[in-house]
Amino acid sequence: MRFSFFLKEALRALQRNAAPSLAAMLTVLLTALVLGVFIPIVQATTGTANDVRGRVLVDVYVAPKATAAQKDQLERRIEATPNVKAVDFVSKEEGLATAKKRNPKAFEEGTELLGRNPLPDRLRVTPEDPDKVGAIVDRLAPRNAEGKREPQLAAIGEIRNREDETDKILSATGLVKLLTAGLAVLLVLASIALIANTIRLSIFSRRREVEVMKLVGATNWFIRWPFVIEGVIVGFMGGVLAVLLLTIAKETFVDPLSERFALIAAPDTIDFPLLVVLLLFACVAVSAIGSGLTLRRFLRV
């Protein structure tokens, strides 16, 4: 009986304060939309960053004069090094073919000019843990006293681990991630402030009612429940609308795009149903807590 009474009171209040309630609902709607868009975006950039990290490689260039036996020794030595996941042999012909594909003009003209293949054979090493790629290089060619690298084996011509490029990519994606996350946090904070303000307005317009409630001996929770329920209803409606809009956007824009371009679908993002549940929960929680807290001030005395 209690609950039905509170529900009735909440519905009556919604009906009577339609305008502020609508404003609160729109605020919730916007917050949910922002969150619903930003969560997948943040996740996508994180996914890209992880992807790049996964592509961290060490190229061990074989010295041109190395014999076949030396090459075999080198390959076994690398395989025995800790933190090495895989070793692929790339012959100079294969290397030239990929290089030509990437930069046809330079390499085709270059080979013509030189009259021979300038690339050495190389061993492509994939590390287990991309962050500890330096240790592999140190193992194969430790630095001497002057800080120069000294290859352990005669077959090693040069070692490169593309650290510079990967570092750049990692820091760029990190920055994007940070920026989007910061923006999302700001937007959520703004929405909470807006919701609190809207609820404060609607309570202010009902302070006479609250006064009478207190006059006849209503406990604070008795006064608060209808407001909290009202907040939950407003939050839920805003959340449902936001989810609807997000679904429409997903169906009409993102899905057709991701079918055509693998790029968009590539990074792993949150499952849509999970996102929906999360958003609805956030909306309801934020508005319920907002209305409950805002009332505190009015319940004093």
Binding site: G217, A218, T219
Partner: peptide, 28 residues
């Protein structure tokens, strides 16, 4: 609140809730 339930209070400006019937006001 429990103190106020043991007090009846009447004011000059009645302090009735305008959107409720007489019965609802008293029943509140």
């Amino acid at each position: 609140p429990y103190l106020r339930r043991n007090l009846g209070v009447v004011f000059q400006d009645y302090k009735l809730l305008p959107d409720r019937t007489v019965a609802a006001n008293v029943g509140y």
